[in-house]
Design a binder for these strands. Structure first.
Lengths: 147, 147
DNA sequence: ATCTATTTGCAAGTCACTTGCATTTATGAT
DNA sequence: ATCATAAATGCAAGTGACTTGCAAATAGAT
């Protein structure tokens, strides 16, 4: 639980390197992502910021702008979970999600070498693409609790 | 090119079975999907409808409602290609897409048994899910033309 | 301490999509 | 063929996530 300090320190350096400033709002948002291991929406982050009040006050527009900056700085990744809002999560280890279509529960699963090699095979067959930069893979089902 | 008649006939039966009525607007929209093999947005369909004028006039709200009905009737599938609007395509053969992040060009690729079995392996490892109903897999890269 | 570019707050704007309601139309029953 | 009725449509207004213009605040370099 002391690693959060290290984490924030590292990230403020990443920000600096990419020409972004290190502000209280940004650190507070990073802290939320560090503590919450699952994907979050802009509005979830906003309400958490107000509730936990590590920061005096914040505007929702600032949250959106911060998420966008973090995405460009490759600190966060935006993911689509077939909900109304976009979700964001730390861009650390590459992984995917299984989403319960009833309760919305999200489970992570690791990226495997099988997936990697499968995608390589696919792109080898393509006449129009030579290399893939990213991919999204999300599974949808009904969890054991809901079933 | 005569199969379109058969296709529309089949689909009007599907609609009937699921309690939807068979209207000129719906048939015109289905015809557009049948002719255009790639995913389309609501607005693309709307402008195509006006241009090709198989139908006298149409309201954009009707296009949205039709897409939604077709999705429920499992005639269309909604897909996320990281653009501002949702894309739709015929729900015939299960496949995935490679999208060029520069020009937006879309290439299809077939669902393979390797993907299927890989997903089975993943869900077997999950403690919270027993079965997956759907999945999305989209690849993003830069096509040979843009590169 | 000062300067400047970046960030923030606020309010207004945008854009895809939805909805309430009155009118029209497809379809099954007569 | 006509009728009855539930579903579909047009229109305009509404919604909700997200963006943006602008002025004030602030981080970070000098």
């Amino acid at each position: 639980m002391e690693n959060i300090k290290n984490y924030l320190f590292d990230m403020s350096n990443v920000l600096k390197e990419k020409g972004y400033k290190n502000t209280p709002a940004r650190m507070a948002i990073l802290e939320i992502f560090y503590k919450n291991k699952l994907p979050l929406t802009a509005n979830e982050i906003y309400t958490k910021l107000l509730k936990e009040k590590k920061i005096k006050d914040i505007n929702e527009a600032t949250v959106y702008r911060t998420l966008s900056s973090f995405e460009k700085a490759e600190i966060l990744k935006k993911i689509d979970l077939r909900k109304d809002s976009a979700y964001f999560e730390l861009n650390n280890d590459h992984h995917h999600h299984i989403i319960c279509t009833k309760c919305g529960m999200i489970e992570d699963f690791k990226e495997s070498f099988e997936i990697e090699s499968l995608l390589k095979k696919i792109v080898n067959k393509s006449s129009k693409f030579r290399k893939i930069k990213e991919h999204s893979l999300e599974l949808f089902g009904v969890c054991r609790v809901c079933n």
